[in-house]
Amino acid sequence: MTIKIASFIKTEFGKSEFFSEELQKIPDITKILSISGEYEFLIEIIVEKTEDLMDIIEYIEKIPGIKEVHSHYVLSEWEKKF
């Protein structure tokens, strides 16, 4: 069973390129969006096990300059195709 998580990430200012490169290195991250407002990035993580998720979140939190990772568990989703 796949687990999908939407995480909002707050970072230090002025290093967005460095963070986006670091985040792109993580294979389980399927989407990275740069956003305006309280957070700098919105990422989507898809994993098979909860343990994998914990490892990814821990890895992200250890990237120097990451201030906060705020995650939401996605229960279900509807994507409009047409």
């Binding site: 986006s20 985040l23 792109q24 991250i29 399927t30 989407k31 990275i32 969006l33 740069s34 956003i35 305006s36 407002g37 309280e38 957070y39 990035f41 919105l42």
Partner: peptide, 12 residues
Amino acid sequence: DFLIITNNILEK
């Protein structure tokens, strides 16, 4: 609450 997407960095 709403947030504006400023850049789509990755979409697999």
